[in-house]
């Protein structure tokens, strides 16, 4: 994973609550056995007017001009602004892969569903929870479509606007460390392999049926 560095990005306002992972990446694209290539199908049902299937040439599909991702003002956006309970529903990590493949590096919302939140960190996507009032004010500014950008500074745990507003966000120290360093957490966990084996020995004595083979 690439280390997460400070960046300034255009904000894309997606003004609806409870955006679910079925909406982020519809099920027909989950048949892929790869981690890449989901970007063209991000928000497929909202982004295109015709039904999509894997293998189609997405450049030839009819786009929905009213959907925010298709508006000229938001092209190249790297920060997605959402409402409460963003990423609810299915555990599909494909939702995060679709966002990052499209070019999104951070999602700002008042709240996130737990599994989506977890999955984001595993892929270098930063989910930032701000208060409803802060998110409201960001929507007001981003909705103008005049190139509203934000600077995301993970080290300082701050979101900053060009005109001097600063929004502080919380993040677990361990997750922050892993993102900043771009660490592979499997390698980190395997450093504790002895602890895992010691646990297993203890547990097997207590509850041997948990170690049965079938």
């Amino acid at each position: 994973m690439q280390p997460f560095s400070k960046f300034t990005g255009l904000v894309i306002p997606l003004d609806r609550a409870n955006v679910d992972t079925d909406a982020i990446i519809p099920k027909q694209y989950l048949k892929s056995i790869k981690r890449t290539g989901f970007g063209p199908n991000l928000f497929d049902d909202w982004r295109y007017l015709d039904p999509g299937e894997p293998g189609m040439d997405h450049g030839k599909r009819r786009i929905n001009p009213d959907f925010v991702l298709n508006k000229p003002a938001y092209q190249g956006g790297e920060i997605l602004l959402g409402r409460e309970n963003f990423g609810c529903g299915s555990s599909r990590e494909h939702a995060v892969w679709a966002l990052t493949d499209y070019g999104i590096r951070a999602v700002i919302a008042p709240s996130f569903a737990d599994i989506f939140y977890n999955n984001s960190f595993k892929n270098g996507l930063l989910p930032i929870a701000l208060s409803e009032a802060e998110v409201d004010s960001l929507f007001t500014r981003a909705n103008k479509g005049d190139g509203f950008s934000l600077e995301i500074d993970l080290e300082a745990q701050q979101v900053r606007s060009g005109d001097g507003d600063v929004y502080r966000f919380e993040i677990d120290p361990f997750r922050k460390y892993c993102l900043l360093e771009g660490l592979d957490d499997i390698a980190l966990t395997l450093q504790h392999a002895d602890d895992i084996r010691a646990y297993e020995a203890r547990r097997q004595a207590e509850a041997p049926w948990l170690f049965a083979t079938h």
Binding site: R35, S91, R92, E93, H94, V96, I115, N118, N119, K122, N123, D172, F174, D185, I186, T189, L190, A193, I196, E200
Partner: peptide
Amino acid sequence: HGIGTSEVEHVLATQCLLQK
């Protein structure tokens, strides 16, 4: 509970999950 694919890999490789 449900987990994402990165966590599936983590459990396959380590039998553990990082959790709070």
